[in-house]
């Protein structure tokens, strides 16, 4: 059982994810260089936070063409678990693996805070042990985290119970307070908060552990 962490040249939370999964949780983890197409032996893939290829054009707009992600579509189809954190979430929406888009925060500033979130769905196994309505505390750090989608998509997300996390106090203007969504199959989760920053007791909260542990089932 092993986790792969994608490394784009501008990823900057790749090491933090590895520290959390391998260092704090003891889950076997290896890096996936953006030019590699080899996902063999992996049960889960994490797209970490950062600025993939600089993101000067639009977050994730270039990353969606990365060689490593060509293999990811098949990986998802075969039921592999994929977690997109922050920039990783942006990339997943650009790839169309998750619906919606992430635009600049309502206040137009980058925002680094620790926020309360409610678990909005217990359909998938990403939040095992949590019930709908339970509160998690996780750090956020993004400039473009305002989740937006059409009314139709929002209805579909609600109907299929794919809204995973909502902000208790919406920090960035996201539609319906959405902080994270899953695909309909439930094996892909994208979220703006950083679970890897809430795994190490020395740094404070450990609410992120549950999400990262779910990578390996």
């Amino acid at each position: 059982m092993s986790i792969g962490v994608v490394v784009f040249p501008g990823s900057n939370c790749d090491r933090d994810v590895q520290w959390a999964t391998q260092g704090c949780l003891g889950l076997s983890t290896r890096y996936l260089w953006h030019e590699s197409r080899d996902l063999s032996g992996l049960d889960a893939v994490v797209l970490p936070g950062g600025f993939s290829y600089g993101d000067y054009l639009r977050c994730g707009a270039i990353a969606r063409f990365a060689p490593v992600l060509e293999s990811l579509v098949d990986f998802v189809d075969q039921g592999g678990r994929v977690l997109g954190i922050c920039n990783g979430f942006q990339v997943l929406t650009e790839m169309g693996l998750l619906p919606g888009v992430l635009t600049r925060n309502r206040g137009l500033h980058f925002l680094c805070q620790t926020v309360d979130l409610t678990v909005a769905s217990s359909r998938t196994s990403w939040f095992r042990g949590f019930d709908k309505g339970d509160v998690l505390t996780l750090p956020i750090a993004h400039g473009e985290g305002r989740y937006q989608c059409s009314e139709e998509t929002l209805r579909r997300l609600e109907d299929e119970d794919s809204i995973a996390l909502r902000y208790s106090q919406n920090p960035n203007g996201s539609v319906a307070d959405i902080a994270g969504v899953t695909n309909s199959a439930g094996n892909v989760l994208g979220l703006m908060p950083h679970p890897e920053r809430a795994c190490d007791p020395l740094l404070g909260g450990i609410d992120g552990q549950i999400i990262l542990k779910a990578l390996l089932g």
């Binding site: 520290w19 936070g49 500033h109 980058f110 680094c112 750090p139 750090a141 740094l203």
Partner: peptide
């Protein structure tokens, strides 16, 4: 001001801005 800065990346920030008279980070090689 400091909420516009990512003060947590690298997973070593023990005391974030505003919490004490000085910032504190853990010594851990990346």
């Amino acid at each position: 001001i400091y909420q516009q800065y990512d003060y947590q990346v690298q997973a070593n920030t023990i005391i974030p801005p505003g919490g004490a008279d000085a910032a504190v980070i853990r010594l851990r090689s990346q």
